[in-house]
Simulated assay, not measured.
Amino acid sequence: MKKSLALLTALVMAVGFTLSGCGDKKEDTSLADVKAKGELVMGLDDSFPPMGFRDEDQNIVGFDVDVAKEVASKLGVELKLQPIDWNSKEQELSTGNVDCLWNGFTKTEKREKEMNLSDPYMKNTQVVVVLADSDINNIADLAGKVVDVQSGSSAELAIDNMPDFKDSIKELVAISDNVKAMMDLGIAGADAVVMDEVVARYYMEKDPGTYRLLDESLADEEYVIGFEKNAQSLRDAVQTCLKELAEDGTLAEIATKWFGKDITTVK
């Protein structure tokens, strides 16, 4: 009898602990919070053309900005553009300073574990940019050279994942943004820049004959939108909006505006 009572007591306590743990789980109010404040705060690097950058009048423009505006409109809120230090993006998201990270944001295993990611909406490749008259023709030629990369970027991660390549170069210089990295390349402060292909091609089109890409790439990637880990309702609402924009042709129109054709992958 005493043994049965002890087992019953243990069972009741176990159930109690389980229910208590469920009660401690954070409630997802992410979508409701965005609608209550009337704005979606988009964390971005404002030096990442053509995804998000400042034009000659210092207005923040770009492909991701245009798409985010359409999504915010569908959600019934305003879009607030919040430029951030890209090297501190995870902290900006986790502390609630921004609702999402949306600016050529690459999907990685680490980010999948730490955040709630949208489905991929565009493919990308990490490439090496050199001056058009450079004698560098392949990755092996970068041995003993100075290479710039944006600090905290997936380009930096791609280099870290190639230890032999990283060890072969003379110096890897972490720059705050790609605009400064390209300026450094232009004045021969660096021999090459590793960056996203979409950004590299923007610079090549803007200044024809100045730059070229090596045929070899460092990594294939996909762009996603990053949300706080518990923000499932906001993530799902934004994903639904993206699908609707793809279905009605709006996403293709925006892509054609910035890239000359539709390179999005939303289904």
Score class of each variant (00 low, 15 high):
118 S>W: 03
202 Y>I: 06
216 E>I: 01
89 K>N: 12
47 S>V: 01
182 M>D: 02
119 D>G: 10
190 A>M: 04
80 K>A: 15
48 F>N: 13
68 A>W: 12
238 V>F: 07
59 N>I: 01
79 L>E: 06
149 V>W: 05
64 D>P: 07
215 D>L: 02
82 Q>R: 07
200 A>R: 05
70 E>D: 09
72 A>F: 03
24 D>F: 12
67 V>G: 06
183 M>C: 04
2 K>I: 08
112 E>D: 10
223 Y>F: 15
176 S>L: 11
91 Q>R: 02
177 D>K: 03
116 N>Q: 03
158 A>M: 10
45 D>A: 10
186 G>E: 13
28 D>L: 09
229 K>E: 08
85 D>T: 13
160 D>A: 10
54 R>Q: 13
50 P>L: 09
63 F>Q: 08
10 A>N: 03
75 L>P: 11
167 D>H: 06
261 K>W: 00
84 I>S: 09
28 D>C: 08
182 M>E: 02
56 E>F: 01
199 V>C: 07
149 V>C: 12
216 E>D: 14
92 E>G: 00
231 A>Q: 03
61 V>F: 04
28 D>A: 11
54 R>N: 05
232 Q>G: 00
49 P>W: 10
65 V>E: 02
25 K>Y: 03
214 L>C: 11
64 D>I: 06
197 E>K: 15
175 I>G: 01
59 N>V: 02
163 P>K: 02
183 M>F: 13
249 G>D: 01
203 Y>W: 11
